[in-house]
Structures are given as structure tokens and as C-alpha cells.
Computed example of a mutant assay.
Amino acid sequence: MTGVGPVLVVTMIDDPTADLVMSELHDRDVPVVQLDSGDFPATLSFAATLTPHGIEGSLSTPTRTADLSRVRSLYYRRPSGFAFTHLDEQDTRFAVTQARYGLGGVYKPLSTPLYRVDGVSCTVEVAEVTADQVDDRVAGTAHLFQHRVDKVADVRVTVIGREVFSVRIDSDLLDWRTDYDRLTYSVVEPPPGITDALHRYLDHFGLVFGAFDFAVDRAGAWWFLECNPSGQWAWMEPETGLPMVAAMADLLERKTA
């Protein structure tokens, strides 16, 4: 990010080295916003949206606000750790992980640390939320919210090297992961331009594998939800007959690029 925006300095309050750098920047009339990520969420807040042009949003401290789209550079020094002293050990681990991945859903976790309810390992399922539910109760850590698509189906596209395996998943579920017995599968062709876009996405991040999720709306348009660089895929081969295991073996054997 370039321009006339501020330098973002992420460090603890007592950091003499960062103080010297910030003093030099001030002498050059370069705006600086200093923050300690460990202050989140007590005195540090943020909101950000991913757009086709980058990140839009802001970070706010008690005395400064940084427009993320205008930050010219980041100086990441020595921030303190996140602290959630009012939570038990399990909830603290969850909150710290969300804060770390949110700063560095339909509500989804940004990461999925081990979480147990009555001794059973659980995950956070996708659920619809309304505007009135997004209140102070979500202020405890970072969250990811996505616009709900009025969908008729989902699609999981698994890219293994240059091979692309596209599977439509039909169900009446908002989150199809919650009941695999209610799913039906069919092999489909991606709409024009999708395959090239997926390869560009992976090339940009230096990846050779990605599990992409899409929602299909009533007009047949595909809405991109996310890419999991270590997503599950093997359960779909028996359901569809797609040679996904062989493709992964080829990739690892370096038969394909």
C-alpha cells in the first residue's frame, strides 16, 4: 500500500527502538499510528472488508484511527500478547486464536482450535445472524461475517496441481457440513472464467492445492465464499468417481506441476 497515509507501528508501549523510529518519522512529517495488538478488544477495535481492490476498513485506538486502505507501510515490532483473563482456559484459547487470525461467520470462526462441549470435540457451524444480534456480545474477539447468498446449491472445487475437480452439493442446509447424509453430489463444469481465476488465485499465493467453496444462486451464478489451502476432498471421490487421489499422487510424485 502506498500513498500519503500513515505508517502503522505495532508494538508494546515500552519499546525504545520503535520510539526512535517514530521520532524520526515525525521529524519528516510522516504520520504514524502506533498500536499494541495485545490491547484488542479492550481499547483497540477494528473492522475490515475484503474487496476486489484490497482491504477497506479501520483500526481505532483511544487516540488514533488508521484507514487501512491508506496505510503506506507496516512496522511490526514487539506487541504484547492477547489477554482474556475473564474467560476459562478453553474459551480463552478460542478467543485468542480468533483475535490472532482476525488481526495478522453467516458467522464462521477465522480459525478452528480444539473446542469441547461435554467432552465432545465441536466446530462452529455456519448460522444466519441478523443485524440486531451483532451487538456487544461479539465484542470479545474477532469474527468473520459473510453476506448470505440466496442459494440453491453449493459447489466444492478442488484444484490439485493443474487438475480441477468441480462437484455440486445439493441439500436444503445453510451449512452442508452439518449433515452429510442429506447431501447429493454431481460433477459439474465451472462457468466460463472460473477455472482461470482459480489458477490465478493459487499462483498469486504460491500454492498448488486449494479447496474452493461457492454458493450457487437461483440465477445459476456462482458466489465465491473461501479457499481452504488444506481442505478436505477425499470423501467426494467415492461419491463421484473423480480420480482425485491419483491426481494428488501425481502432484506429489511431481508428474504434474
Rank of each mutant, 00 (worst) to 15 (best):
T130I: 06
P62W: 11
P109H: 09
G105E: 02
D136V: 10
A142T: 09
D39R: 13
D15M: 07
T195D: 12
P229R: 04
F94G: 05
V120M: 12
Q146V: 05
L74I: 15
R182E: 13
G57L: 09
W176M: 05
V126D: 12
A47P: 00
T43C: 00
L44F: 05
A211C: 13
L144F: 08
P62H: 05
F212G: 10
E163P: 00
E24N: 03
D179V: 04
F145S: 04
M1R: 12
R116W: 03
K108N: 12
H204R: 15
A246E: 13
V4K: 12
K108Q: 11
R168L: 14
P192I: 06
P113S: 09
F84L: 02
D172C: 08
V117H: 02
D27R: 14
A95Y: 03
G231V: 07
Q146R: 10
V10I: 15
F46A: 15
P109M: 09
D170V: 10
Q34A: 13
W223K: 08
S60F: 00
A153P: 10
T92V: 02
G57S: 10
G3S: 01
L35R: 06
P109I: 10
F94I: 04
D203F: 04
S73D: 13
P243K: 07
S171G: 08
F145L: 11
T63V: 12
R218P: 01
Q133I: 09
W222R: 07
L59K: 01
G140L: 11
C122L: 04
T158F: 09
E163C: 05
V124D: 03
V155G: 06
T240C: 03
M236L: 15
D88T: 00
F165K: 02
E189V: 06
M12Q: 14
A153E: 07
L173G: 09
A197W: 13
P6T: 07
I13M: 02
S58N: 05
R148C: 09
W176F: 15
A219L: 12
V117L: 03
D250Q: 13
